[in-house]
């Protein structure tokens, strides 16, 4: 389907609800239902948070190794090197999230400009 020809049509919006909103939002609703009756100090919360954390870093690894869009054009060694520089920036500069993100992203852009395609 050429998305541009569908402009002005309702179809892209129906598609947005069916293949974007609902498949994603259903996990939030399910979480809301499952959270009933669980209290803050419960061991289940610790276990579930570990699951969320593992999935989260799983997403990180996927986005860095099997990147989407323009990021896929940046060689993988530059992506991993930039991630390492970002982590180093975070650890060295007062464990600041901003410092880590800025260092990593600047390293990626610089690496791509210097050694990229």
């Amino acid at each position: 389907m050429n998305a541009a020809t569908a402009v002005g049509d309702l179809w892209p919006y129906v598609l947005l609800i069916l293949v974007g909103f609902l498949p994603s939002e259903v996990w939030r609703w399910l979480g809301m239902a499952l959270a009933r009756g669980i209290d803050e100090s419960s061991e289940v919360v610790v276990w579930v948070r570990a699951i969320a954390t593992a999935i989260l870093t799983g997403v990180v690894a996927k986005l860095m190794l099997f990147s989407p869009g323009a990021l896929a054009d940046v060689p993988v060694w530059i992506r991993l090197g930039a991630a390492a520089i970002g982590m180093a920036g975070f650890l060295l500069i007062r464990r600041s999230v901003l410092a880590g993100v800025v260092a990593g992203t600047a390293a990626l852009i610089a690496g791509d400009l210097l050694f990229g395609p």
Binding site: L34, V45, V48
Partner: peptide, 11 residues
Amino acid sequence: RLLPMVVALLP
């Protein structure tokens, strides 16, 4: 990931 995140936060 949104499921366990919601379950961990709401309580």
